[in-house]
């Protein structure tokens, strides 16, 4: 029986969420294509994960090797390519993560198999594989057909598929490592933990967050003041940290912090998914952006389509008015 492979992703003693998201989608695809769902688990001393994965897959292929202890795209590529050549799966799902991005393109090229990256949906129409992915920072979706092949590789965007309750009791199969040759080009050295700053944005009730739309660092004080009179903390999206206008401990998103504030003000933030994943669970989200189609309005409870340089000063004025009226009464 043909298989659908899902590459399990794990780091620092944990299976990463993307693994279960892919297994959920994989189960659905396996049903529609009459294939078997197989989780691929590579690592060292990871048997304990195989148990967990077996509840989500019909089969878990476990390969342990000291060379697979930490993620290394060279070692992973060698192992996976031999496995794919041998088992010829219909489809291999890999997370579109820092690991998947390092692994999938080289793997697909080596095997001469078509790859579609960062997919937010995929389905088979007969033997044809159709995918949906995004362009222009999430402002446009694209439907594409993948070049016909006996085997496909897809990288899947994080937090796209909702994990379902496990229903399976898969078989765990241990295979011996095929890594005979030395991993010579690439070597993992160590992890570097994020620096902890003096402010923890994850514990703030009110976050006023700025993005590219504030245009210049000289506009930062205007928004900082809004944060102050609201009793909140200034946060930001990635471009602000890239430009050095705020330190990385203020960054909200996949490469920064995940927050769940009572109020999240998104000011001049278009809402690329990398940012949205870090803030969408806040209680109340208000977004100000001049593009009415900015993806942020899909996640905000309230929106303002206008120039932030007009709205923010007005807003500050009104809050100050309210506060002074209160202090006088």
């Amino acid at each position: 029986m043909k298989e659908i492979f899902v590459l399990a992703e794990h780091r620092q003693g944990q299976i990463r969420d993307i693994t279960f998201e892919m297994l959920t989608k994989g189960e659905e695809l396996a049903e529609t294509t009459d294939t078997q769902l197989t989780a691929i688990l590579l690592g060292k001393d990871v048997k304990k994960y195989a148990e967990t994965l077996s509840k989500y897959a019909e089969k878990v292929l476990l390969i342990e090797d000291i060379k697979l202890e930490n993620f290394n795209s060279e070692a992973y590529q060698q192992t996976l390519s031999q496995l794919i050549i041998k088992k010829k799966p219909l489809l291999t799902l890999i997370g579109h993560t820092s690991y998947g991005v390092d692994l999938a393109p080289g793997l697909a090229t080596k095997l001469n198999l078509p790859l579609a990256t960062d997919c937010i949906d995929l389905k088979f129409n007969g033997e044809t594989l159709l995918v949906t992915r995004q362009m222009y920072g999430g402002k446009v979706n694209v439907r594409a057909t993948i070049r016909k092949s006996k085997s496909y590789i897809i990288t899947v965007r994080q937090s796209t598929f909702t994990v379902q309750k496990p229903t399976m009791n898969g078989e765990i199969i241990e295979m011996s490592s095929s890594l005979s040759e030395e991993i010579s080009k690439k070597r993992f050295i160590k992890y570097l933990l994020p620096l902890s700053g003096d402010i923890d944005i994850t514990t703030a009730d009110i976050l006023v967050s700025i993005g590219r739309g504030i245009k210049d660092v000289s506009n930062k004080p205007m928004v900082e003041e809004l944060a102050k009179i609201l009793g909140g903390v200034l946060a930001c999206s990635r471009p602000i940290v890239d430009k050095g206008w705020l330190s990385s401990d203020r960054q909200v998103g996949t490469s920064g912090k995940t927050v769940k504030s009572k109020l999240y003000f998104a000011i001049g933030i278009s809402g690329a998914f990398q940012h949205v994943l870090g803030m969408k669970n806040s209680d109340l989200i208000i977004a100000i952006n001049k593009d009415p189609n900015a993806p942020i309005f899909n996640f905000a409870n309230y929106g303002v389509v206008d120039d932030l340089f007009k709205i923010v000063p007005s807003l500050k004025e009104k809050i100050i008015e309210l506060k002074s009226a209160r202090s006088q009464s």
């Binding site: 993620f71 690439k186 070597r187 993992f188 050295i189 160590k190 992890y191």
Partner: peptide, 11 residues
């Protein structure tokens, strides 16, 4: 990597 984590790799 994700969440502010980095890894050091030699290539």
């Amino acid at each position: 990597l994700e969440g502010g984590l980095e890894e050091i790799v030699e290539v």
